[in-house]
């Protein structure tokens, strides 16, 4: 009977549309972590902290160039662009590094080999460094040439967590727009990173 068949099709169509509407409505209310929401949904940050291993041997200099991608990936939590031959550009207003280390008996030194992004409108780059949420220092770069910068990290900041999370904030990051890739914020080109005992 055609009319019965039509009723069946109308009913099934309505049921499907209701289910699909319900799924869509649910998808409008994601249940995610604050970090995920800030980075992927609200886009209020340029940094989504990745669950990297932080595998690191105290004293090693880890190149941020493409050739040693494996070691870099262990430390780079967020805020980094794809590595180039010599190093990696920061991406956005903040970058994070993670070191998995045992509680140190003495203070440590974070060593960064870096070059700033400078141009006529950006004569300096300030770098604010924090460790496990504690501000360490702010340093300023005004020369384009590579420079090594050392920052003291008090041992009590590492504590017993086994993690040392370093955050680099870039208040002077420069927005640049390139065809096909949108706006990117440039601040710091990192050649290599090391964490050393104070006496190294």
């Amino acid at each position: 009977m055609p009319s019965k068949r039509n009723h069946w099709m109308y009913g099934l169509s309505a049921a499907l549309l209701l289910i699909e509407a319900a799924i869509f409505a649910a998808a409008l209310f994601p249940s995610v972590t604050p970090e995920y929401r800030a980075y992927y949904l609200d886009r209020s940050t340029d940094c989504y902290p990745l669950p990297v291993s932080g595998a690191y041997r105290l004293g090693d200099r880890v190149s941020f160039g493409a050739a040693s991608e494996g070691k870099r990936v262990d430390l780079a939590r967020c805020g980094w662009r794809d590595p180039e031959a010599r190093g990696s550009w920061s991406d956005g207003n903040r970058s994070m590094l993670r070191f998995a280390i045992a509680p140190p008996p003495a203070d440590l030194v974070l060593q960064l080999s870096v070059q700033p992004y400078l141009d006529a409108e950006t004569p300096r780059q300030r770098i604010e460094v924090t460790a496990n949420g504690t501000p360490l220092e702010t340093f300023e770069l005004v020369e384009k040439s590579p420079a090594i910068h050392r920052i003291s990290v008090p041992s009590d900041i590492v504590g017993t967590t086994g993690w040392l999370d370093i955050t680099l904030n870039y208040p002077d990051a420069r927005p640049l727009t390139a065809a096909g890739s949108g706006t990117r914020y440039y601040a710091l080109f990192v050649l290599d990173v090391a964490l050393m005992g104070a006496v190294d």
Binding site: I23, F24, A26, A27, P30, S31, V32, Y36, Y40, L41
Partner: peptide
């Protein structure tokens, strides 16, 4: 939505 918490 069920697995990740974000259907989109």
């Amino acid at each position: 939505q069920f697995q990740v918490g974000d259907g989109l």
